Amino acid sequence: MTAPETRSFVDIRVLVLSGPSGSGKSTIVDRLVNVAPVQLVKVVSATTRPPRAGEVNGRDYYFLSPEEFEQKRQAGEFIECEEVHGNGNWYGTLRSELTRAQQAGAWAFLEIDVQGALSIIKEYPDAVSVFLTTASEGDYEQRLRNRGTESEDAIQQRLETARRELKLSKEYKHIVVNDDLDRAVSEICHILASAEG
């Protein structure tokens, strides 16, 4: 009698999706989870920021106190973590989240900022990495303004961040232009089907 085959830690299949604010990541993520040709488990990030209205711990984020976050960081439980936007709030990806996806026989799907993505790509060089962009920089600004949730200073800060992130897009295996939602989702599905095959 042979032992059941187990997948090693390095066999975890990983999809990384990044893009500047206003590139349409959230909409793409929601659609992909439902239509992708492979099973995707959305990785839940951890953060020290307080929950916003309607956010649920364990679904939207793992909301940790700064002390809890630091304990996990010191214990090496994060694949990547950093302070984001310079406001004192930390974000990170727990290793246990990738294990959760692996145990479900699925791909770990990370919607993550560029700096975090580069750390994931370094640790998982076989990861399928997709940088989502719009047709022009003006599209980012228009989408941010249409949200109606950002101050002018916040908009300008996000646009500056977008410019920096765009320069790093060449670090990704794939760049997808989100000028048409259906086409962008279809393109990412094709990328996943090719990687799985």
Rank of each mutant, 00 (worst) to 15 (best):
S119K: 15
E165A: 11
E80R: 00
D153W: 09
I120W: 04
S151H: 08
Q74A: 12
S65Q: 09
D182T: 13
Y140F: 13
S45F: 00
S65L: 08
G19L: 06
V130K: 02
S129F: 04
V114E: 11
E196P: 10
D126Q: 15
A106K: 09
I120V: 15
R147S: 06
G138Y: 03
A127H: 07
R158G: 02
T93E: 03
Q71K: 11
E137G: 12
S186L: 10
A135I: 10
R143C: 08
V10Q: 11
D180R: 11
E196Y: 13
R31V: 01
D139A: 15
Q103P: 00
E152A: 14
A106R: 09
E67L: 04
P125I: 07
S21M: 12
L159I: 09
S65Y: 05
S186G: 15
A104I: 00
G24L: 04
S21G: 03
R143G: 06
A104V: 01
G197R: 11
F63E: 07
K25G: 03
G92M: 02
Q142G: 00
H190C: 07
A193G: 10
Q142C: 02
A36N: 08
V130F: 02
R183G: 00
L118C: 06
G19W: 06
Q142V: 03
D139K: 14
G54C: 06
A127F: 03
W107R: 02
E97I: 09
R147H: 09
R7L: 12
V16P: 08
F109M: 10
E77D: 14
E171N: 12
N87G: 02
E70A: 12
V33G: 01
G92D: 04
R59L: 14
H85Q: 11
T133Q: 11
D126R: 15
W107E: 00
D11M: 09
R158K: 13
Q74L: 13
A46V: 06
L118K: 12
T2L: 08
V176T: 07
A3N: 04
E5C: 05
V38E: 04
R163Y: 00
C81Q: 10
R143I: 05
L144T: 05
L40D: 09
V56M: 03
Q156V: 02
Q156G: 00
S119M: 11
G88D: 11
R100E: 04
S151R: 12
V33I: 15
L144Q: 04
L181K: 13
R100N: 09
S136Y: 03
S186V: 00
G116E: 06
R13F: 02
H174Y: 14
V41E: 10
R145Y: 03
R100G: 03
F131T: 01
L40F: 07
A108R: 05
D179C: 07
L132T: 05
Q115K: 14
L192F: 08
A75D: 11
P37M: 05
T6K: 07
D153E: 15
Q157L: 11
L159M: 13
T133A: 09
A104Q: 15
L64G: 02
Q74W: 00
R183I: 13
V84A: 07
E123L: 15
P51K: 05
L168V: 01
R95C: 03
S23W: 07
G92Q: 01
I191C: 02
G54T: 07
Q142T: 14
S136C: 10
S45H: 10
